[in-house]
Design a protein around this nucleic acid. Structure first.
Length: 281
DNA sequence: TGATATGTTATCTT
DNA sequence: CAAGATAACATATC
């Protein structure tokens, strides 16, 4: 479930929690959740934690651990000497490990990082820098970096007839946007999510570029969104608060915050899409 | 029971 | 071949 702002929040939390720590052991509780030989990482120290698209990168001296949380993955850090019941949020006490714990990274100081994943779509891979390059070369630009410009959008929008919302979520075109932030950005830009990209005017593309940057920064500011089931949580166990700022996402049948008409829910590419038929044209 | 879930990708169709 | 549409992955909840 985590999109760019959630993964960025986790990255920052991990950077604080595990940078410099040495990996003492890795327990793989579900074979498919760890790709490659986990033993190779034992004895290595974490140099830094980075993010690319919706993936986390834990850099080690030789290799790196690449993590994708997909729909239901979580990374929870348990400091040394801390009992599980201390890691709680307003919703519940976190039991660690629990039935959904797939991998446990243990550090030499006694602290642990738990990878929980209900649906088992997520994974951790150990890769050489070369293999990392090969695996990530088809990703589009990072929307919060300077290579993300309205000219770039104009270029990728020229020939395609796909709905704009699908294009925003296409990781090979723009990295990191998912279902929540796509709906939110399109509302901010006043663009109907079904609109075909080759029909967008220059003015709309500029507005969209701005809206994407704005919505992602806002998402990071509020430490991501823990919607519905609260599957997304930070490494500390705390939830994010962006869900309190949704303009359209999950607000179907509620009033548009601008024009007070009813927010609609439709399906685009099989995914729920929320928009205001009056404000978004 | 059927629909839904914040992601990606293999496969099928046009 | 390319673009677009759809199914599939595995599990839980409403």
């Amino acid at each position: 479930m985590p999109e760019l702002p959630e993964v960025e929040t986790i990255k920052r939390g991990l950077q604080t929690a595990i940078k410099g720590k040495k990996i003492a052991d890795i327990n793989v509780l579900n074979t498919n959740s760890f790709k490659g030989n986990s033993k190779k990482a034992i004895g290595s120290s974490v140099l830094e934690v980075k993010r690319r698209a919706k993936m986390l990168i834990i850099k080690l001296p030789e290799d790196l651990l690449l993590i994708h949380l997909k729909m239901s993955g979580q990374l929870i850090f348990q400091p040394k000497n801390e009992k599980p019941e201390k890691l709680k949020n307003k919703q519940k006490v976190l039991k660690l490990p629990n039935k959904h714990t797939r991998v446990i990274l243990k550090f030499t100081d006694g602290s642990k990082l738990f990878f929980n994943d209900i649906r088992k779509f997520g994974w951790i891979k150990i890769l050489s820098p070369k293999d990392f390059m090969l695996q990530t070369k088809s990703l589009g630009p990072e929307p919060l970096k300077k290579e993300f410009t309205s000219d770039y959008l104009k270029q990728i929008f020229t020939r395609s007839q796909r709905p704009i919302k699908l294009m925003l979520m296409d990781q090979t075109k723009i990295a990191g946007i998912g279902n929540i932030y796509a709906s939110e950005a399109l509302f901010m830009a006043g663009i109907n999510p079904e609109k075909k990209v080759n029909t967008l005017k220059s003015k709309e593309i500029k507005a969209l570029k701005k809206a994407v940057v704005k919505v992602l920064k806002k998402g990071i500011k509020y430490k991501g969104s823990s919607a519905q089931d609260k599957t997304y949580i930070q490494p500390t166990g705390e939830i994010g608060s962006y869900q309190h700022h949704f303009l359209v996402y999950q607000r179907n049948n509620k009033k548009c915050k601008i024009c007070a008409r009813i927010i609609k829910r439709i399906k685009i590419g099989g995914r729920s899409t929320f928009y205001c038929n009056n404000c978004q044209t």
